[in-house]
């Protein structure tokens, strides 16, 4: 059993507060969806969890299995079981998918232990087949010249290879065509299980018909302002965010 606990988290970029007191708990086995208008801090939250150095945590905590990760570098957090599927994955010229993933797998082995190359490739090809990624991609540079959908598929391939305990997926559905959305969703669903917790950021209810969430949260202005089950996503889809904002405004300050 794993848990990702976000406690009253405050995050700034420079002097500008972006996340303003956000709390959320994801247990393994659960899928949480976060929806919310553009610019409300969803990606900021995702990157802070992953350990991006540009953001300053000004209050609160992020705990993985009860231990604060905030003092850890991004790579330590990843090896501890956190994974971020990026909204905008970086292109890395000259570094092939195969070498990149190999380095990531190698980094998880005990000091002095060498990766078993045959077993590694076998596993890599199996995951690629599952996600319907052409095996030729192994020799292509990471994300370089990939279409939007290929990038997202490649993020899920990495997730499948690295088997995290907690995955934050930032708009993995955007840029996917209908078939790709189905393939990626099937890929994620195949990974779903008692060993994995998912925090899924999306703008579209459609994804949630493929990957059915246990909880849906609405994020607005750096906070979670409403939580519910999957029906909340349907309601947002039909009504937009205005009613949430109005409800908020009606609340006593």
């Amino acid at each position: 059993m794993s848990s990702l606990v976000i406690q009253d988290l405050h995050v700034s970029i420079g002097d500008k507060p972006i996340v303003k007191g956000l709390s959320l708990t994801v247990n393994s086995g659960e899928v949480h969806a976060i929806m919310g208008p553009n610019g409300t801090g969803k990606s900021t939250l995702a990157k802070v969890i992953a350990g991006h150095p540009d953001y300053t945590v000004t209050g609160g905590d992020v705990l993985l299995d009860g231990r604060s990760v905030l003092a850890q570098e991004a790579d330590e957090r990843a090896r501890a079981g956190l994974f971020l599927a990026f909204q905008y994955p970086s292109e890395i010229p000259g570094v092939s998918i195969a070498n990149f993933l190999r380095a990531a797998v190698q980094a998880r082995l005990p000091e002095g232990e060498e990766i078993d190359a045959t077993a590694y490739y076998k596993r890599l090809y199996a995951k690629m087949d599952l996600l319907k990624i052409d095996r030729k991609f192994t020799s292509r540079s990471v994300n370089e010249g990939f279409s939007g959908g290929e990038k997202k598929r490649c993020e899920i391939l990495q997730m499948a290879m690295l088997e995290p305990k907690m995955a934050v997926m930032d708009e993995t559905d955007s840029g996917l065509d209908i078939d790709a959305l189905r393939i990626v969703s099937e890929g994620v669903n195949a990974l779903r299980g008692p060993g994995l917790g998912v925090l899924m950021i999306t703008h579209y209810q459609r994804l949630l018909t493929y990957i059915v969430p246990d909880f849906v949260h609405v994020m607005y202005d750096g906070r979670i302002v409403k939580s519910g089950d999957k029906s909340l996503a349907l309601e947002l889809e039909s009504r937009g965010y205005d009613w949430v904002k109005q409800e908020l405004a009606a609340l006593p300050a």
Binding site: P53, A78, G94
Partner: peptide, 30 residues
């Protein structure tokens, strides 16, 4: 070294030093 590329590699568990090394090999690959 591009900090976003470095972060991307680190976010996959690759230590900073190894990440910079990979990026350097990538730079040479051309």
């Amino acid at each position: 070294i591009d900090p976003e590329q470095e972060f991307y590699l680190q976010a996959r568990g690759i230590p900073k030093r190894a990440a910079d090394e990979l990026l350097t090999f990538g730079f040479f690959e051309e």
